[in-house]
């Protein structure tokens, strides 16, 4: 029983990270109808930047600064990405856009390996919360930060989209760019905003997971794929679905790690992604070209 609970706990923790990553995909998709291939890199950079900047050891003040700086960095990265990618998207073939985003992702990863080095970096816990041991179940201190962050980010984004003009403007801009611009909404600015938000929350997620999953420049691919899997699982474009998808993927991964197939746990998430894309791409109305040809 304790074993099951432990898996549950691990699953929720890991799933929360994936959920935030998935939200990044969702936000950008909602605002631009584009899949941001490089979303995982936001988490990667967030983690590495935090690691580099944090003075390891006691106290959480320096850590706050590190995390904050990491978030700023990833937000700027997001902005830069939007400028490069979106300026290209309307004019050419789709597969060129795909390759452009792949190229950007590679540049980011390469840059990260140059700036942060190719070693795995270690960050100590953020502190403040203690680790909990409930019965035989171990809840790492960092875990609390992660879950709290997920809740706050989800609520914040929900409030943004449902209740603020900016949020509604973003949705309007993605659905009907021309009509939106006639109403004074600039689709480009909305797209920029969405990339910045995705960058910020990605950076936050990366920073948060740094103590329990040491940041490494190759992490971005895995996180990106799993975040995408989570976003698709919950129905692309649906923020609530993204979070649920993330938790789901986290639980599945945790379960497969716990019940024996630990080496394969990543593969299970990836294959799940492929399976979902093929069998039930619900929520991808219009974008997916499923034709009777």
């Amino acid at each position: 029983m304790a074993f099951l609970l432990q898996i549950l706990v691990s699953g929720i923790l890991v799933g929360s990270i994936y959920g935030i990553a998935a939200l990044g995909f969702t936000i950008v998709f909602n605002a631009t109808r584009v899949i941001n291939f490089a979303n995982g890199e936001f988490l990667m950079v967030g983690g590495l930047a935090t690691a580099m900047l944090a003075i390891s050891g006691v106290g959480w003040m320096p850590t706050v600064v590190a995390v904050g700086a990491a978030i700023v960095a990833t937000s700027l990265l997001g902005a830069a990405m939007q400028v490069l990618a979106l300026n290209y998207s309307r004019s050419r073939d789709l597969h060129m856009l795909v390759m452009l985003t792949i190229g950007i992702t590679l540049m980011l990863r390469g840059l990260a390996s140059l700036v942060f080095g190719r070693d795995v970096l270690f960050v100590s816990d953020f502190g403040l919360f203690p680790s909990l041991v409930v019965g035989q179940v171990f809840i790492p201190a960092q875990g609390v930060w992660i879950v709290v962050a997920l809740v706050l980010v989800s609520l914040g984004l929900w409030a943004l989209f449902k209740h603020t003009m900016v949020g509604k403007a973003m949705q309007a801009a993605s659905l009907e760019p021309r009509a939106a611009s006639l109403c004074g909404i600039e689709p480009r600015r909305m797209a920029l905003l969405s990339f910045v938000i995705a960058g910020a929350i990605g950076g936050l997620a990366g920073a948060l997971m740094a103590p329990i999953a040491p940041p490494f420049y190759e992490n971005g691919v895995m996180l990106g794929l799993k975040g995408f899997a989570a976003a698709i699982a919950g129905g692309l474009g649906n923020p609530m679905g993204a979070v649920i998808g993330g938790l789901l993927i986290g639980l599945i991964e945790s379960a497969s790690a716990g019940y024996g197939a630990s080496g394969f746990k990543d593969a299970i998430s990836f294959l799940l992604l492929v399976a979902i894309l093929i069998v039930r791409p619900a929520g991808l109305i219009g974008k997916l070209e499923v034709k009777r040809v």
């Binding site: 899949i35 856009l97 795909v98 985003t101 794929l225 294959l271 894309l277 093929i278 791409p281």
Partner: peptide, 26 residues
Amino acid sequence: ILRLSGHYLALATLALGASAYIFASQ
């Protein structure tokens, strides 16, 4: 898989490729 296109196909094939590497190592 080829019912997918664009980014979806890229990501699906990336997922398959990543899985292949994992299978190769495990």
